[in-house]
Structures are given as C-alpha cells and as structure tokens.
C-alpha cells in the first residue's frame, strides 16, 4: 500500500469508527443503559479524524461537549468509550464524566468540558508548558463557533498571541448554537475577519474531505512550531443531528430541544450527499485502497464496536464507596483529612 493509500485508509478507519460507534449509540440509547446526555458528532467526523491524524504523539488536545469524534479519533478504541457511555468502572474516566467529559490523558486528550469555551484557556496553558519544556509538541484546542461569543475565547486567543505559543485553535463551525444561527448571535459576519487583527495565522475550509483537513492541519501544526504564531483553523461542517440527543431534525423524527423549521430539508439533503464517511470511503478507493481492503476495515470496526458495546453493558458499575475517591491527589498531608470522630458527650 502506498503512503497516500495508507493515509487514506487510516482516515477512513477513524471516520468509520466514529460513525459506527454513534450508530450503536442510536440503536441502544432507548434501552436507557446509557444515562448521559449525548451531543452527537455526526457530520464532524472528518475534522476530528483529519486533525488528529495530522498531530504528533506528544501533542495535547482539548475538546468540548461534542467530542465523541475527538476521543475516538485520538484513542482508536471503543471499549473504554462505551464503558463511559454506560457509566461503568472501566469507562474512559471511570463513570465520572460520561459523554460530555471524556478524557484520555495517556494519549494527550487532557480535558473536555460541558461549558462552552472553557477548555480553550487550559489549552493555552498547556501550550505554554510545551514551549517551556522545549518539547516541540503543539496543542490543538477544539471548540464550536458558539465559543467565539464567550469572553474567555478572546482572552485565550489574546494570551496565546502575546506569549507566541504553539497552538492550533480548531473552530468546528456548524453555524448553530442549539437552534440559533450565527447571524442571530454574532456581531461580526466573518470569523476570518474577526480574528484577523490578532497576531495569529488563519486557515479555513468548508469541506467534508478528511484528506484535505489533514493537509490543512499538518500545515497549521508545522506553521505554529516554525513561526511561534498561533494558528486559527476554521473548519465548517453540517451538524447532521439535533443539538442534543440522537434524533435528526428530519426523517420523521420527533421534535427535540430545538424550535422547528430552523433549517431546511434541502440543506440537510445536500449535507447527506457530502457525508464525511462517504467522502472518506471514496477517497480511500481513489487513493489506492482496494474494495477488499475497505471492506476489511469496515468488518474489523463493526466487530470491535459490537464487542465493546456488549462488554460495556455487562461490565461492573463503579463501587458506590468510591464516590469521594480522587477528589484530592494523595499527598502526605491529606491522609489526616478524614473527619475526626465526635467528642464524647458528657452533658
């Protein structure tokens, strides 16, 4: 397999794993075993796969509540993912985080937050640490277009530019905050122009092609390391499902959290035709993967997802006695912190 074919195969494998995992969530969410609010990634798979594949082993990543894709693309595993969805002791964070707080510190996915824009500031601090330690690693901070309405986004961009840190700000722009369009929320018409005044570089695309995103992210990573200027990577996508939950706005779905009619069926159909999974499959074939190779990838992922889901459903729940474990890191001093017993009552 050529280098190009291998890359296309890797991207397809990642995109397909994300999609299959979320299809499994949809199939089983109604059984009420996964008691965690789902913010589904369907539609953004190419961004997670493209950027993660461009990053190096030591790079650090920060996400937000819509981070199934980010977690799966970075970890290449589904066992701990489903463990966390089912709130099990062997979940990604032991049943302490659920869908909105996935993390995988062992591979550099350090934090995922349920509050818009909240991980962007820690991402900047992590980039400072990489530079201070002279590692040659970068940080990728993922957020949605809604984060740009938060003060802490601008503060963080400002700090990263002042300190000239190795960071890529990855804006996953679906144009919606729940069901409110960018026009209704933002006092600027162009994200590119809004960040143009900062000492950072901008790159952007409106594509569902993971290969193109990989190329952009590779360049962004190299650029921030070479120049010391942060890069703002602006990637548009279409959110295929509702803001929260497993429903589409179309296909006879029940109304969700959103108002009705906030986007059109024509737009949705257009997005379906450029579905990132379909595009990645075509790209794999175009770049030299055989049909047999593609089908082998799919079969392997199908087995992996089914096995992970089955394992998660039957694995042990966390022990209730551990509810206060890990509130503090162990130190010499915390051993004494247990509440002392009451004094003997003499009156």
């Amino acid at each position: 397999m050529s280098e190009r074919a291998a890359l296309a195969a890797t991207l397809y494998r990642r995109v397909y794993r994300i999609r299959r995992a979320e299809q499994a969530i949809i199939a089983h969410y109604g059984e009420n075993g996964m008691k965690t609010p789902m913010h589904m990634s369907m539609g953004e798979e190419a961004i997670a796969a493209g950027v993660c594949t461009a990053l190096a082993r030591g790079d650090k990543l920060f996400g937000y509540y819509r981070s199934h894709a980010l977690y799966l693309a970075r970890t290449d595993e589904t066992e701990r993912f489903f463990g966390e969805m089912y709130g099990k002791a062997d979940g990604a964070v032991g049943g302490r985080g659920g869908s909105m707080h996935l993390a995988a510190p062992d591979v550099g996915l350090l934090a995922v937050s349920a509050i818009v824009a909240s991980t962007i500031a820690p991402a900047v601090g992590a980039a400072f640490a990489e530079r201070a330690r002279g590692t040659g690693n970068v940080v990728a901070a993922f957020f949605g277009d809604g984060a740009m309405e938060e003060g802490v986004f601008w503060e963080s961009l400002n700090v990263a530019c002042v300190y000239r840190l190795p960071i890529v700000f990855v804006c996953e722009d679906n144009g919606l905050a729940v069901d409110v369009t960018a026009m209704e929320r933002q006092g600027f018409r162009s994200i590119k122009k809004a960040v143009a005044g900062f000492a950072c570089d901008y790159a952007g695309a409106n594509t569902t092609d993971a290969l193109k995103i990989h190329q952009l992210a590779t360049a962004a990573r190299a650029s921030t390391l070479a120049t010391g200027r942060p890069v703002f990577l602006h990637l548009k996508y279409y959110r295929l499902l509702q803001h929260i939950g497993i429903q589409s706005d179309f296909d006879g779905a029940a109304p969700g959290f959103e108002k009705t009619g906030y986007r059109s069926r024509a737009e949705y159909e257009k997005a379906r035709r450029r579905d990132p999974v379909r595009i990645a499959r075509l790209a794999a074939a175009r770049n030299g993967c055989t049909v047999a190779e593609i089908k082998a990838i799919e079969a392997e992922i199908d087995r992996e997802v089914d096995a992970s889901l089955a394992k998660a459903r039957h694995s042990a729940a966390p022990d209730p006695c551990t509810v206060t474990d890990h509130v503090f890191a162990p130190t010499e001093d915390t051993a004494r912190m247990e509440r002392t017993p009451p004094m003997e009552r003499t009156a």
Binding site: A121, P122, V124, G125, A126, F128, A129, E130, R133, V152
Partner: peptide
C-alpha cells in the same frame, strides 16, 4: 485556566 493547563502538562 492557563494555570490549570500548565499544571496538568508538567509545570
């Protein structure tokens, strides 16, 4: 937040 990011990343 910067302090958190630096603290969980080796400083």
């Amino acid at each position: 937040g910067f302090g958190l990011g630096a603290a969980i990343n080796g400083l």
